[in-house]
Simulated scan of single mutants.
Amino acid sequence: MRRSAIALGAGLAATALVVSGCGGQQQQGTANPQQTAKAPAADPKLAAMVPDKIKADGKIVVGTDSTYAPAEFLDQDGKTVIGFDVDLFNAVAGKLGLRAEYVSAPFGAIITGVSSGKYEVGVSSFTINDERKQQANMVSYFNVGTQWATKKSNPAGVSIDEPCGKRIAVQKDTVQVPDIEARSKKCTDAGKPAVTIDQYQGQDQATAAVVSGKDDAMLADYPVAAYAVRQTNGQLELLGQQYEAAPYGYVIPKDQTQFAQAVAEAVKAIIADGTYAEILKKWGVEQGALANPAVNP
Rank of each mutant, 00 (worst) to 15 (best):
M1H: 08
R3Y: 14
A5C: 12
I6P: 14
G11T: 12
L12A: 13
G21H: 06
Q25L: 09
N32Y: 01
N32V: 08
K38R: 15
A39E: 07
A41F: 04
A42E: 06
D43P: 03
P44R: 11
A47S: 11
A48M: 10
I60C: 09
V62G: 06
T64P: 06
D65P: 06
S66F: 00
S66T: 12
Y68D: 14
L74V: 11
Q76R: 13
I82P: 04
I82H: 06
F84T: 12
V86W: 09
D87W: 05
L88Y: 04
F89L: 13
N90Q: 11
A91I: 07
L98S: 03
T112I: 12
Y119E: 00
T127S: 08
I128K: 07
N129M: 03
N129F: 02
E131T: 10
R132P: 01
Q135K: 13
A136D: 02
V139P: 00
V139A: 02
V139Y: 02
S140P: 00
F142K: 02
V144E: 11
W148Q: 03
W148N: 05
N154Y: 11
G157T: 11
P163K: 01
G165S: 07
G165A: 04
V170N: 08
K172C: 01
Q176F: 06
C187H: 07
T188E: 11
A190S: 08
P193M: 02
A194E: 11
I197L: 08
Q199T: 14
G202D: 14
T207I: 14
A208C: 10
A209P: 05
A209T: 06
S212I: 09
D215S: 13
D221H: 12
D221W: 09
V224P: 05
V224R: 09
Q231T: 15
N233E: 15
L236V: 14
L238F: 04
Y243S: 10
Y243K: 13
E244M: 12
A246K: 07
G249F: 04
G249Q: 06
Y250R: 04
T257V: 14
T257P: 01
Q258Y: 01
V263C: 01
I270S: 03
I270A: 04
A272H: 02
Y276V: 01
A277H: 10
A277F: 02
E278F: 04
K281G: 15
V285T: 09
E286H: 04
Q287G: 05
G288W: 01
L290P: 00
N292G: 00
V295E: 00
V295S: 01
